[in-house]
Amino acid sequence: MAAYNIKIWRQNGPDSNGSMERHVVKGIDGDMSFLEMLDHLNEDLEEQGKEPVAFDHDCREGICGACSLVINGQSHGPETTTTCQLHMRSFEQANITEITVEPFRANGFPIIRDCVVDRSGFDRIIQAGGYVSVNTGNAPDANANAIAKPDADTAFDAAACIGCGACVAACKNASAMLFVSAKVSHLAHLPQGDAERHERVESMVNTMDREGFGSCTNYGECEAACPKSISTDNIATLNREFIRAKIGRIT
């Protein structure tokens, strides 16, 4: 059982000023997940009649993409995983007892309260074209078109994005390029996505800009921070798709 000095971001609301608050959290077992350590802190706070620290989380299995903390300066902490799959033994083994916890900070992710941010900009980017326009009805037989396995696999690797926003939080420009490129690349590698590929990439990139996300300068922090190891190759795909769409418009 170990004790940790936690410095955690508190902010009462979107328009309030925030600050770091210090707490000592005792009785932490290495088998506890990082969020269970925060549960423990929150139980202590509630017992003292104080309001618990708000943070987003839901599935706690590393797949829903809700959890979103910057831990000791890194999106989702020191390992390649989501915050919810990070365990306290990771700190125990490295003899780290000081932990700083902050929200994902980005222009496109305004803070709602404490460590909870508003990532609805991501939803609006998908609404701008991150889909195939097919109505529910009588689609052709699922095996009517064969898709070469390498294409299917590449599409899948891009589709594994969980939309958590770690890439944005890690980027010095707060760019959403990795997120946008993952969806563009997923659909660009499949015949189903072909008909709308030009409109899709233009519309999604325009929306990304409008939502206040920064530009990509090939820094690569996004890929390093991504819990699902989405590759920056997708950004190259996006750039290619974008140029192709622009040329397609001219000719």
Binding site: G137, A139, A142, I147, K149
Partner: peptide, 21 residues
């Protein structure tokens, strides 16, 4: 019908080397 529709949406189901589901 569900499988047909989801494939039309671009859901990346597992495929074999012939490209079929």
């Amino acid at each position: 019908q569900i499988i047909d529709h989801c494939v039309a949406q671009g859901v990346p189901f597992a495929r074999d080397y012939g490209g079929l589901l």
